[in-house]
Design a protein around this nucleic acid. Structure first.
Lengths: 146, 146
DNA sequence: TGATTTAATAATAATTATTATTATTTAGTA
DNA sequence: TACTAAATAATAATAATTATTATTAAATCA
């Protein structure tokens, strides 16, 4: 991923460009599983052994506060992180513990339409998404993927 | 809530009827906020000071394993519990930290239709729900409810 | 550019939420 | 009623996350 894009994204939120932030953001952008803070830490520590786990947590929280990334609660209770901030949905895969993105403009339209039609008294809707839960099937053996 | 219904529900899963289980299940059924284990513990301990927090956790987990109740991950990372097992959606209210049920047959139909139409390769969908996030509005003052 | 200021980080302690352990108690059943 | 397996209380342990503080680095500005 382009380093310039990364530094610009961080700077655009008025945040200082630091090596740690670049590395954490880069790792999150490169991941497709919606990693935990610890998974990001494990991934970056080989090439950056000086970065501490607490810094990873702090950095991620800073990004979330500045709406550069999103937090995703997962069914097993640990927080996951998502570099995407545009509209999309998630599929939680229970047998691999992955969280995958699910994109479909049609779905977004359907949901927007639906919510517009309905009345929600005294409630200001700030977000909505279809949460799909499923299990990956090994096409040969059936559902046995760990 | 009817004690007989509660004991029957517990027994229907082949679980022993204990005072602790009755009290925990009763408290969950009576709650509309989708409480945490600790909130249930706080609520029941006045009339049942001998029940320990660990028992509340254990009891809830037993209920979840036996599909008598459901676990609901929340945006702030702590687990919430839900006595309902029939199809319904949730609205997470960020300014009060409540989780509310949202029921609509039409929505269920829309989503079922949609998912049936789409192809998900190598994925067995086990659950889906619309996750709505919002904030309660004080009709007089605007959004200021804590 | 170099000094200064302010924010960020590393190291680690502390906290919170949850799970595990084990001795004791209890529910279901013979 | 007594037996046996399961459940509970008390508490220790663990996992995930947050707080603290001394140190370091980035941005500002003279």
């Amino acid at each position: 991923m382009n380093l310039e894009i990364i530094t610009k994204a961080i700077a655009s939120k008025g945040l200082k460009i630091t090596h740690q932030r670049i590395v954490v953001y880069q790792a999150l952008l490169a991941s497709v599983i919606h990693p935990t803070a610890e998974q990001i830490y494990d991934q970056i520590k080989e090439s950056n052994p000086a970065i501490s786990l607490a810094t990873v947590y702090k950095t991620l929280e800073t990004f979330v506060e500045n709406r550069l990334i999103n937090k995703v609660p997962s069914p097993n209770g640990t927080m996951r992180y998502d570099a995407r901030t545009d509209y999309h949905n998630h599929i939680y895969i229970s047998n691999t513990n992955e969280i995958m993105d699910y994109d479909d403009i049609e779905l977004k339209e359907i949901l927007l339409n639906y919510l517009k039609k309905k009345q929600f008294e005294n409630l200001n809707i700030t977000d909505f998404k279809l949460q799909i839960k499923g299990e990956k099937i090994d096409p040969i053996k059936g559902i046995t993927i760990s």
